[in-house]
Amino acid sequence: MSHLLDLEGVSKRFGGVQAVDQVDFHADQGEIVGVIGPNGAGKTTLFNVVTGFYGPDSGKIRFDGNNLVGLKPNQITKVGIARTFQAVRLFGAMTVLENAMVGQHPRTRAGVFGALFHTSSTRSEEERVQAKAGAALDFFGDRLSPRLNSLASELAYADRRRLEIARAMATEPKLLLLDEPAAGMNPAEKDGLIELIGRLRDEKGYSIVLIEHDMPVISGVSDRVVALDYGKKIAEGTYEEVAANQQVIEAYLGKSATQGQT
């Protein structure tokens, strides 16, 4: 069986830094894959390469029968990959609802003519966009839906993270890439996040890759865990296997040991 997302020997270099080094990586339909590794390990860069923000220097990236290398980010979104950002990047001057509505962009097609003349197809499309965006927001219970007309910049921090996920959901993806979704959350919110990620797969049928530093979150949701260090994949397996891996322990200890000294 072929994988939903499949990376083979992907590398990305920034000047003197080999940010991603010959990485093989895959995610299957309905799977939740956790990606761990110390800061600077190349986790975010891996996402950026998959979503077309950077082209890989070498390697193959296939998704759902498409070759992603050379595609632009908007084309990759269209074939079914959506993402969130490590540092929340919402459209601050747009409302909560509009943020989610932008997510529907790749699933709609109204152009200048429809915008000017409000043709019936444009009107029904707008209604559909609102409904789908609303549904994505409803997924978060009463966190976002009562604030449809607030500006994104007016939301509390945890709600901004939620809205980022809702906006990604509105693109109707097959695969969702979450970059440190638990960052800045308190323990109760982290528990909520674990439940939410499970629901995203079970109810929405997304496959999910998440980068996370928080081990309880990783162990709570991941079917499989991949560890990166200095751009290389150093371990792969269940959470228990990876957590027991000597190289992984050293990568984390080494980093915290040197960080402890400085």
């Binding site: 979503t51 908007n74 993402r83 601050g92 997510g103 962009h105 109204a110 200048v112």
Partner: peptide, 27 residues
Amino acid sequence: RLSDSRIGRAWAAMREDESVAEAMGVS
């Protein structure tokens, strides 16, 4: 009419953050 449409939203998103707009499927 343009501002109050799918096009207007795409523009607004682009104005706010070009790369994120692109990641949301806006060409």
